[in-house]
Amino acid sequence: MGKRTCLYDMHIQYNAKIVDFAGFDMPIQYEGIMDEHAATRNAIGLFDVSHMGKFELKGEEAKSCINYLVTNDLTALVDGQAMYAPMCYEDGGTVDDILVYQHAPNNLLLVVNAGNKDKDYKWIESHLLPGVDLKDITNELCQLAVQGPKSVALILSLTNISLGTLKYYHFLDQVVLADVPMLISRTGYTGEDGFELYFDKKDAQKIWTLLLEEGSSYGIKPCGLGARDTLRFEAGMPLYGNELSETINPLEAGLGYFVKLDGEDFIGKSSLLEYKVQPKRKLVGFELMDKGIARHGAQVLNPDEERIGAVTTGYISPTLGKSIGLALIPYAYDKDNILVQVRKNRLEAKIINKKFLKQ
Score class of each variant (00 low, 15 high):
Val95Asn: 04
Glu56Asn: 05
Glu243Asn: 07
Asp48Cys: 08
Gln299Met: 13
Ser217Glu: 14
Glu60Lys: 06
Lys167Arg: 09
Glu252Gly: 14
Arg186Val: 09
Tyr198Ile: 11
Glu246Met: 11
Ala114Asn: 04
Gly53His: 11
Lys276Arg: 13
Ile316Asp: 02
Lys206Gly: 02
Pro181His: 13
Cys6His: 05
Glu246Asn: 03
Gln359Met: 03
Phe24Ser: 04
Leu154Lys: 02
Tyr8Arg: 14
Phe47Ser: 04
Tyr240Trp: 12
Gly314Arg: 07
Ala104Glu: 13
Lys354Asn: 12
Phe286Met: 11
Thr71Lys: 03
Asp79Cys: 06
Leu339Ile: 12
Gln205Asn: 15
Thr319Asn: 12
Gly292Ile: 03
Arg343Met: 05
Cys65Ser: 08
Val180Gly: 03
Val175Asn: 00
Lys354Met: 12
Ser162Arg: 05
Lys276His: 09
Glu125Asp: 07
Val175Asp: 01
Phe233Asp: 09
Gly191Ile: 08
Asn42Ile: 02
Asp96Met: 06
Glu192Gly: 06
Ile351Cys: 08
Ile184Ala: 07
Asp9Ala: 10
Tyr30Arg: 15
Leu283Gly: 06
Ala82Trp: 00
Ala349Pro: 09
Met34Leu: 10
Lys119Trp: 04
Glu140Leu: 13
Lys221Phe: 00
Tyr101Phe: 15
Ile66Phe: 10
Gly59Asp: 01
Ile18Ser: 15
Gly314Trp: 06
Ala298His: 12
Pro130Cys: 04
Thr190His: 02
Leu211Arg: 07
Tyr14Leu: 13
Glu234Pro: 01
Gly241Lys: 00
Val342Asp: 05
Arg307Thr: 08
Gly263Val: 01
Lys63His: 15
Asp73Gly: 02
His51Phe: 03
Leu328Trp: 04
Asp118Ala: 06
Leu183Arg: 09
Gln102Trp: 02
Pro303Asn: 06
Gly292Ala: 04
Thr313Asn: 05
Met26Gln: 11
Phe356Arg: 01
Ile44Phe: 15
Arg186Ile: 03
Pro330Leu: 07
Glu56Met: 01
Asn337Ala: 04
Ser317Ile: 07
Lys150Pro: 01
Asp9Val: 10
Pro279Gly: 02
Ala327Gly: 09
Ile184Pro: 08
Ala178Ser: 11
Tyr218Gly: 07
Leu177Tyr: 03
Ala310Arg: 09
Gly32Pro: 13
Ala332Met: 15
Leu166Ile: 00
Asp203His: 12
Gly219Val: 07
Ile155Pro: 01
Glu125Ala: 06
Val342Cys: 07
Ser323Glu: 09
Leu156Val: 08
Asp265Trp: 09
Tyr84His: 11
Gly92Val: 08
Gly268Ser: 11
Tyr331Asn: 13
Ser185Thr: 09
Ala349His: 12
Leu154Thr: 02
Ile161Ala: 04
Asp35Pro: 03
Thr94Arg: 08
Ala294Val: 11
Trp123Val: 04
Glu60Ala: 08
Asn242Leu: 15
Lys355Asn: 15
